[in-house]
Amino acid sequence: MNLSTTHLTLRDCPLNSYTVVDLSLRRRIRKRRMDEPSHDATQAERRQRFLAEASVELLVHAQQGDDVALDVLCQRYIPLLQRWASGRLPNRARDLLETSDVVQETVIRTVRNVKNFEVRRDGALLAYLRQGVMNRIRDEARRVGRKPVEIDLPDAPVERDRGPSPLDALIGRESVAIYERALARLKPLDREAVIARVEMGMSFEQVAAAIGKASANTARMTVNRALVRLAEEMAHDS
């Protein structure tokens, strides 16, 4: 890994209260929490303040070494991305891989590596994180595809290749590819709107905050127009 762009030594999401699916990670976190000194009042205050802060602001703090900011980012994105990833991971890969590790590693790497000018909106950070997780999934899928692994599913049909992700199974692999290509061709704002609402399931209020719109209603209209453009792009491709 190229570490030249960062002076940080982040290796894990620092603390604490976000819920994760993976039990082993949770155990690790609990252990860590017991090992660490209790938070001082300043930390609690900062946390409170950061919770209301935009992610792009937290990113700056985190990159300057603020564990609380990083923690809030983790809390904000890990469950979201984890949920998202479960729909994008091939079944086999999902069995073999701790989704949360992929997501957590990606969040840490992104926070470490991303340049501020690349992510001026929270929605952009989210899209960036999503892309990072997507790339990791592809890496993992390739890895899993190469390496025969015993899996404990006696009755399940064993796929010879890496197997379809839930999304592949839902709309077909080709349609997923078309969708991804079309999404990549959208203007950043449109792409972020689609990702925030369609893929991450954010409320329109949250979408509005993420893409800098004044109201949920405005955000909704932005999402809708983005969906139409996306469909048009997909139609050209198919």
């Binding site: 699916v21 979201l80 969708y179 369609v198 399931g201 949250q206 469909a231 048009e232």
Partner: peptide
């Protein structure tokens, strides 16, 4: 375009099938 919108609807459904839709970013299953 209709087919594409159908695919998008499916994707929306997939990602909302675990009740993520409208859930706060900090909420989790």
């Amino acid at each position: 375009i209709l087919r594409s919108l159908g695919s998008i609807a499916s994707i929306t459904q997939l990602h909302s099938s675990d009740q993520a839709l409208n859930a706060g970013a900090g909420d989790a299953v």
